[in-house]
């Protein structure tokens, strides 16, 4: 399965000089990319895609967009309460 690009939740500044080889923080996108393989496998048979999208190809982007939207809405919601 193709993997997602490594990236943090926040934009990573480009380092101008060589960096030591230290493990990158495990971002949500990396965790999801590793865990969401083919979809729901029922009794060993693939039955449906997870989150209703084809995760192997473009679905992860849609999923993340949706997660980011949810996170943003969650941040906004308290301010809109009376």
């Amino acid at each position: 399965m193709p993997m997602a690009e490594p990236r943090g939740l926040a934009p990573q500044p480009q380092a101008p000089q060589p960096q030591a080889l230290v493990p990158q923080p495990q971002a949500l996108v990396d965790v999801l990319d590793r865990l969401l393989d083919t979809g729901v496998v029922l009794d060993g048979q693939l039955v449906i895609s997870v989150a209703g999208v084809d995760l192997v190809h473009v679905g992860l982007r849609a999923l993340l967009a949706s997660v980011e939207t949810a996170a943003r809405l969650a941040q906004v919601r308290p301010e809109t309460r009376p």
Partner: peptide
């Protein structure tokens, strides 16, 4: 499982 937020 079709809800991205829940799956995440």
């Amino acid at each position: 499982a079709s809800d991205p937020e829940w799956v995440s």
